[in-house]
């Protein structure tokens, strides 16, 4: 029994999470790019999907990513007031707030779904965000509640 708990604990923290990150074209994507060109080291767990604006991110994207095997989802956009399209990130913020609360309500850990503001000049902040997100997801373990099961039949 103790052995089993130990292995369960071990897989919980040892696993390398898959994180899908939706980055806005104008700020966060450039910020992540800056982190790369500045040779800042950060955990390699994120798979970036570039979108034109964080307001483009449909909350169903989050749900669908979790279904398809992502352990976590990050949405990142420009700081309030800096949106290339003036208001996109404000809409995103409102939608995401509700979605995150709701996922927590049905038992999906809020650590899995995060949102951040990262500007084009914040390569260092990007590193910090990723470290925090990865750590959070490692603390809750792999996503398995409503992941699409690889059924044999």
């Amino acid at each position: 029994m103790a052995e089993a708990t130990k292995t369960a604990e071990a897989t919980k923290t040892d696993f390398e999470p898959n994180i899908v990150a939706f980055l806005c074209n104008w700020c966060s994507y450039a910020g992540a790019d800056l982190a790369g060109t500045s040779r800042i080291q950060y955990p390699p767990n994120v798979r970036v999907i570039r979108v034109m604006c964080s307001g483009r991110v449909n909350p169903l994207f989050i749900m669908n990513a979790l279904q398809q095997g992502a352990d976590g989802v990050l949405i990142s956009g420009c700081h309030p007031g800096d949106c290339h399209y003036m208001q996109g990130n404000y809409f995103a913020r409102r939608r995401f707030n509700l979605m995150r609360n709701f996922l927590e309500y049905v038992g999906i850990e809020p650590e899995r779904v995060r949102m951040s503001w990262v500007s084009a000049s914040e390569g260092a902040k990007w590193k910090g965000v990723i470290e925090e997100v990865v750590e959070g997801i490692k603390s809750v373990g792999p996503m398995d509640s409503f992941k699409r099961r690889q059924l044999n039949w």
Partner: peptide, 9 residues
């Protein structure tokens, strides 16, 4: 503009 954002990193 003043919507809550304490959950944002």
């Amino acid at each position: 503009v003043d919507d809550r954002e304490d959950f944002i990193l």
